[in-house]
Each structure stands twice: as C-alpha cells, then as structure tokens.
Design a protein around this nucleic acid. Sequence first.
DNA 1: TATTGACTTAGAGTTAACGTTAAGGTTTAT
DNA 2: ATAAACCTTAACGTTAACTCTAAGTCAATA
Lengths: 148, 148
Amino acid sequence: MGYTVKTMAEKANLSPHVLRYYEKEGLLPHVKRTKGGNRHYSDGDLEWLGLVCCLKNTGMSIKQIREFVNLRLQGPETLKARCDMLLAHKEEVEKHIEEMNRHLEKVTHKIEHFTKQYEEYSSGEAHGQEAMRTWGQTPSVHKKKSIE
Amino acid sequence: MGYTVKTMAEKANLSPHVLRYYEKEGLLPHVKRTKGGNRHYSDGDLEWLGLVCCLKNTGMSIKQIREFVNLRLQGPETLKARCDMLLAHKEEVEKHIEEMNRHLEKVTHKIEHFTKQYEEYSSGEAHGQEAMRTWGQTPSVHKKKSIE
DNA sequence: TATTGACTTAGAGTTAACGTTAAGGTTTAT
DNA sequence: ATAAACCTTAACGTTAACTCTAAGTCAATA
C-alpha cells in the first residue's frame, strides 16, 4: 500500500513534476520515503491531495492553500479557522461564478446579434450580392457599413 | 463626444496603461486621434471594449481575443466564424462553471465535516479537556489522531 | 551484472498579463 | 501661461504556476 510519484500523479491527473512542486511548496507535508529516498505516498496523502486539488481547481492560490495546510499542521485548535477559511473561499467562488454568468449573458447577447446579422448577410449573398461582388464595387447605398 | 484615455479607462475600470497595451496588442483597432495625436475614443470603441472585457473576464486569452478582433476586421464574411468562436467559448465557460460547481460541492462536504469535528472538539474542550491541557500530556487513548 | 528507466535535487527558464520607470517631448484645459 | 495630462519607445520588474535541465542515484529486469 503506497504509490510512487508516477502512480500518484496518474491518480491525481497531475504530472510528477507538479507533485514534487506542491510538496516543495508545502501543500503535501510529511510524504514518506523508501529507504532509497523515493517518495512513497499513502492513501491519506491521496485523500489530502484531493482536497488540495479541489481548492486549487476552484481558484485558490497555492499561497492560500499553504496557509490552510499550515493550519492543519497546528492541530485541532485550528479547526474553526480552517472551517472559516473554507467558508470564505466558498463564498468567493460563488460570487465569482455569478460574475462569470453575468459576463456570459452578454456574450450570449452578442451571439444572438451575430447570428441575426449572419443570417441577413448570407441570405443577401445567396440572392444576388454574390454576383455584384464579381462586377465591381458594391454601391454604398445597399451595404451599410456595420460596426459588428 | 469622445473620451481621453483616462476617461475611457475609468469607464472600463482599467488603467490607461492597459488601454494602450490592449491597443498595441490589437484588441482595440482604429482608435481615432486628435490633431495633436492624443487618443480620442468613441462610443463605438467603448462598446467594443465592453465585449473585449467580457471575453477577457470569462477567461479568454488576449491572443484569442486578438484572433476574434482580426476576424472582425476582415468584414462580414467572417460573421459565421466569429459566431462560432463565441459559441465555442460560451460552451467552454459553461463547462468550466459546471466543473467549479462540482469542486465546490466537495468543498461544501469538507466544510460540513469540519463543522462537525469542530463542534465535537470545542464541546470536549468546554467540559474538561481544557483543564487537562494545563496538566500535561493528553492521554492518547482519548484523543484519536484525526487525519483532518 | 549491466543496463534501462524511474527517481532524486537544485536551480534556471517560461508564459501571460500586466506594472513600473524613465526619458524626452507634446497637448490640452484653466 | 502653466500645470496636468498626454504621447512614444524601450526596457526592466512582477506574480503565479508551472516546466525543464543537469547531473546524479536507485530499482527492476535481462
């Protein structure tokens, strides 16, 4: 029971490099070694890495994750602090998601706008404008200069 | 009708520096100048910048935004391409948001877990464990070494 | 036992998207 | 007229999160 860097990396869908990097950054403390000095990850490490990845994947910086890890290392007196930290993070992420959704709405509007324009344009082209192109300059009266 | 860099920057909540940077990177083409050479942004520029910011704020890279701008500069033949690009981006962002939500659920679980542990711990401390701490080592029998 | 391949380290390099500083000049607003 | 804001170029600095390199060590197989 225990994994090499490579196995661990596969399980976590990360590169071995990143695992070593995380360890160096203090995100994965107390990783055991074999006699030879090779990393030997436990299931506990794997579970912990799971949480670390969750935090990272929701945008928490490595610096902040390190703070979280440091709290954990200080024992159960920091349970409340850790809980608060996660709660704060959760709220931030939720706010972030809301913002993304707002921005996305604007994009959706633009898409609708473009779709309409595209339909107009392509139908215009299908019924005669294509021919005009080959004959010379399009009369400016017919072709309003669109901003989009 | 027209804005200086500073005004424009305030409207967009960016620094003047970033506006010049975006222009240099090709994100804001055809910005008019005064006789003297100062930038003189139009409402059209402002609107365009709005879209650029939306894309940026939903995580599109400057490189990709530049591609989008370049399509626009090629005229209405690229309407479909632009539309497709935005659609693809939208889907990506939606996928990203879903993923965030999934990760967030895990965080929520952890929070519940921590809350429970914290309550146990603090009630334990309130009814006698605090005293024990001042007397010496906590007997290992009573204090299971938690992984969290 | 030899060799291959995975592991180790420290440290340098990369990328994106800015930010900073400076020099030296021009424009605009009051 | 004078101060504040603007211009350009150009290079250097910053931060985050990797990513790679070099030079060496360890482990498993033929």
